[in-house]
Design a protein around this nucleic acid. Sequence first.
DNA 1: TTTGAAAATAGACAACT
DNA 2: AGTTGTCTATTTTCAAA
Lengths: 136, 136
Amino acid sequence: MADTIDKQLLKILKENSRLSFAELGRKINLSPSAVRERVQRLEESGIIKEYTIIIDNKKLGNTLEAFMLLKVFPGKLKHVIEKITHFPEVKEAHRITGSQNIHLKITVKSQLHLQELLDKLMTYGDTTTFLILSEI
Amino acid sequence: MADTIDKQLLKILKENSRLSFAELGRKINLSPSAVRERVQRLEESGIIKEYTIIIDNKKLGNTLEAFMLLKVFPGKLKHVIEKITHFPEVKEAHRITGSQNIHLKITVKSQLHLQELLDKLMTYGDTTTFLILSEI
DNA sequence: TTTGAAAATAGACAACT
DNA sequence: AGTTGTCTATTTTCAAA
């Protein structure tokens, strides 16, 4: 499992995943080779799942973001899951416990776009929407 | 604003943010220089907010993940926001619309840990918890 | 885990299409 | 906007301790 140094590396990489092994090493006083071995172990063990970017959806014209809870109609869950992953508006999707069974994070261009999305999702189950006002 | 090529770049970078300009260029048939200019514009305009890693919290010993809605007691919101951001369990936090006002994503090591977290959050407001079963 | 050195690559810039 | 060519700095990789 990950020790203290690994945790430090993860924290730094979370803030900036483009640093080289040398730069990482400078930050935690370790040689580039040692950093390389640790990072590769973190990748191979799957602790680092992927290297990615955070995109500002607002700047791409998706001015509205929301969380959505979906209570899928009985027997439709598998089908709905299959469908939902292909919606471009859906950025994240999770199965959850509770009376609702799917949690979504979505982005849309406008209120009208949100309405259209809701119209589609309503055919799968009951929806509850929380618009995102800001990140904290 | 971002054109089709920029969107392709964003998509590729979202899947793997460590590719070089040259590698990106190979994927979309563009020279490294051209890719460089585009990616830098995406960074400068803030469309690419940050380069980061996705960490598998389960493998780090945080076996439980959950979404949580918080209906903060009147007048306490500012104080609660300040507090919450310092909780190590809180991975994401958003202000939202609706009768609840804060949406959290949290990770905890155990049911007991979750209980302790809930005990703390209960002093700020009413909580609703959805355990995450899986990603879709 | 460190150090050192060789080989490979990336990033930046200029001139041109 | 994009290409090509080139130079420099940096990184990666590997071997030896």
